[in-house]
Simulated assay, not measured.
Amino acid sequence: MSVQNKDYASTVLNPFLKDIVATLLVKRPDEPLPFLMNLLQKKLGREGQLSEKAELHMLRKEVARLKLQAEHGSEDEHSESAEEDTVEELPQKPSHPNRHRSAVSAEAYGKWNKKEDFRPRVIPKTQETERHLSERLSTSFMFSHLHGTEKNIVIQAMEEKKVTNGETVIKEGDDGNELYIVESGNLKCYKKIAGENKHIKDYSSGDAFGELALLYNAPRAATIIADGQCILWSLDRECFNHIVKDAAMKRREKYVEFLSKVELLTGMDPYERSQLADVLKTVTFAANDFVIKQGEEGNVFYIVEEGNAVATKIIQPGQPAQEVLRYAPGDYFGELALIRNEPRAANVQSVSDLKCLVLDRHSFKRLLGPLEDILRRNAKHYEEIPTKAQKSR
């Protein structure tokens, strides 16, 4: 490659492509091509300038491509020929030269994407079973954000499955149409690494697995085998896509936006923030509750989403704890115990109703590992606080 081409790639192409790829990874559209067309139109300042017929022409081409892909990509499904598929003309409206019309996308008009066509399955259950499932879903990360009607739809659609010792529930590389929540028993997860099946983790009561194939429309990422008798609850792909996935995507977008405003995380790219948003959990505290206590073991990292909190510390034995810091939305705490593997260095107590995003030790190390140097530098600030507090007395 010539020097000129290298310069052009590094200064023009790479930043542009990085921005496009990051946007795709955050939004994860079901139909990337129409999404990209609209995105590029916005970047060019041409949104809304295409005529309806031009947009429909592009839609027809995309529908034909998808149909053709479906015909050649699946031996089990039959679809009509691409040439027979059409998109009906939109009713013509009087033109308004001074009014811009928002762009039409395949995702909005594609008949495969109409939520009103969704008819969830209903598997009869006793009231006691429904109540138990509701409690089980509330403790599962994948479903904890569901409430009301959405939660009830999922409960009705879930099916009980009993598996025997040694039975393979899902197999790496297979297509996946269900995810599972463990009701009872234990299962082992294996993944092929360097040609060998390696045991990477276990699943027990309350854990969920199998969602990756549904979230990303990809083959099974690992093999799960029952280690003894197990009872599972399964959820079908259609219900997951219409209820859980949509809610999960909305939740991700909400937290990605919030995380982009957290000073500590400004160096993360959009994809890294989306990964972080996927594993965050929400905890709430009433006013004057202790979030953490000095001397306790620490396994959780906190980011304040709503409300305020105060940190207090016993600086001299036998003396009452002194206030050393205040926390507002976007502030974080609890990282010292995770970085140093030491007990909590201070108390943190809610001043008002408090809502925090939390990250467990494993996820903290995996996702915030690159930020550890920043966190360690900030930790020096904490070390200076007791000295300043003593001098101010």
Rank of each mutant, 00 (worst) to 15 (best):
E71T: 11
L212E: 07
E52R: 13
V122W: 05
F209Y: 09
V291P: 10
A226D: 03
A311F: 05
C239V: 11
D269P: 01
N5R: 15
L39R: 13
D175H: 12
F285K: 12
G295S: 05
V87D: 01
L68G: 15
R28L: 03
E178W: 14
R136T: 14
D373P: 08
G173S: 07
Y332V: 03
E305Q: 13
K254G: 00
Y190D: 03
K61T: 10
K391Y: 06
L17D: 02
S95I: 01
V291Q: 14
H199M: 08
P34G: 03
Y255I: 07
D7F: 14
K365S: 14
V182Y: 05
K53G: 02
E159A: 12
L146N: 07
G334R: 04
N113T: 00
K388Q: 13
E263T: 09
G330D: 01
Q275T: 02
S392L: 11
V63L: 15
E71S: 13
M249L: 12
K250T: 10
Y255P: 00
H57M: 03
S81Q: 13
E77W: 10
K201H: 06
Q41E: 11
R65W: 06
L214H: 09
E80K: 14
G330I: 00
L40T: 03
A194D: 14
A328E: 10
K6G: 01
I374E: 15
S204F: 06
E335V: 03
L44E: 12
V154M: 10
F333S: 08
E172Y: 05
R366H: 08
Y109E: 00
Q390W: 00
E196N: 11
P15H: 07
C230I: 04
K43F: 00
I123H: 15
R393A: 08
E130K: 15
A103G: 13
L66N: 15
Y8T: 10
S350K: 08
E71Q: 14
I20C: 04
A106T: 05
E71Y: 04
F240K: 08
G334P: 13
K388S: 10
E211A: 06
I303F: 12
E297C: 01
S138D: 15
D117E: 09
S2C: 07
T11M: 06
K254H: 12
N341M: 10
N299Y: 07
E47A: 14
Q4V: 06
E272M: 06
K43S: 03
F258R: 08
R121S: 09
E83R: 12
S350P: 04
V324C: 13
V169L: 03
Q127F: 09
T223K: 06
S234D: 01
M158C: 09
K151G: 01
K67P: 00
T86E: 13
L44N: 07
L265Y: 11
E47T: 12
E160N: 09
S51G: 03
K61I: 06
T387C: 01
A247I: 04
D373K: 14
D19Y: 11
L13S: 08
S10M: 14
A328N: 11
A389W: 02
M158G: 09
T164R: 15
R252T: 12
S184A: 08
K198I: 03
F240A: 04
P317Q: 14
K313W: 05
R366E: 11
